[in-house]
Design a protein around this nucleic acid. Sequence first.
DNA 1: AGTTTAAGTTACTCATGGGTAACAATATAG
DNA 2: CTATATTGTTACCCATGAGTAACTTAAACT
Lengths: 206, 206
Amino acid sequence: MIRKLKLSKPVLNREEKRQLKLDAILRHAAAAFMDKGYYKTSLDDIARLHKVTKPTLYYYIKNKEDILIKCEEVASIRINGLLDVVTATDETGFVQLQKFIEGYVEIVTDDIIRCHIRHRGQREDPQARADSLEMHRSIEHRVREILGRGMTDGSIRDCNSTIIAILLFDALNGISAWYRDEGKVNHEDLIAQVLLIVTQGVKSQV
Amino acid sequence: MIRKLKLSKPVLNREEKRQLKLDAILRHAAAAFMDKGYYKTSLDDIARLHKVTKPTLYYYIKNKEDILIKCEEVASIRINGLLDVVTATDETGFVQLQKFIEGYVEIVTDDIIRCHIRHRGQREDPQARADSLEMHRSIEHRVREILGRGMTDGSIRDCNSTIIAILLFDALNGISAWYRDEGKVNHEDLIAQVLLIVTQGVKSQV
DNA sequence: AGTTTAAGTTACTCATGGGTAACAATATAG
DNA sequence: CTATATTGTTACCCATGAGTAACTTAAACT
């Protein structure tokens, strides 16, 4: 027992510990950004949340904007991962769309993703700006392909997939700004309402 | 003719001229905020656009945040005006909803409204914050009433009007961020696509 | 024409906050 | 148990930009 307390080799190696700390910083930063906004949150605020001093942050991040970029990476991986899963099946386009929506509502609840959605498009660095735009375009393109698939297989009515994809994302991304797990709106209810919109709109069918 | 050049009474009195200049400043500021964002736009930037110096702005506005507040006033008047017109008719709830959507897409294209939508929710002053929230709640409430009317008269299917109103606003407000009059997407097409979503979703009806 | 009020300018103050240099402590490896 | 890389700290620099004081120019009313 005593030997276990004084392990010669630590349970986690340096790289893993570093990664965990970076994650924690990202989470603290994301929470603060969601609360007060990017510009009203100072690096000192974030450092305080993490119980370190500001210069320590620079061991994990390049600069303030780098936090947003790292949040974006996380978002990109999760959203593209979902799209991979959804498009790997041989379901109809409409069913794939439904599955995507269900998964996306889940993803959009995570603090780091929330932060990314709220602050995307305010990149200062031109390269980061371009990367961000490219990721956005690519994801939207993959959703348009799902819509196209549905129109081909007949599960989705003829529509302008460009416009529909944008409207869909705006509605879903908006969820990140207001939905809270502890809030009044129930999670299943939310998904059900969104799915009903895409299946039949709001007009009562005669 | 020469007498006309030297009018003893100007065409516009002081109050009117002042109002026109305030409007112009608001427009310049809104354009700059949409381009670079609120925090990356300095008052010097705005002054330069208006071809005056910074202190002159303080003759028309109280402080930087006051610009956002004045944009909000404009937005409130236009949106509530639209709602007044739409709800004054004795059409069914669904038709009222359609008319509201058509009008809202029009409103959301204006630069000052665009600016308000993008920057609402970052009020610093507690009072302004509360006012902003209240306006937002009130407008959302009026749309929920339209949905309720539709459910009562049978033109709108049974739904959670709270969730639907939020999703609808997020999709419509999103338009302000990407739609451009000179862009690829055609105005009529946009409205048609939105209306088709609310009337029948995207699923092909069997 | 001369007085007053509106409109605008130049030249500052001053808080904030991102970023860094130089130094201190702690943990891992040999 | 010492040498070295890793984390972390204190104390600073400095650009930016909101807001103001004091002064000048232009317009309007009598």
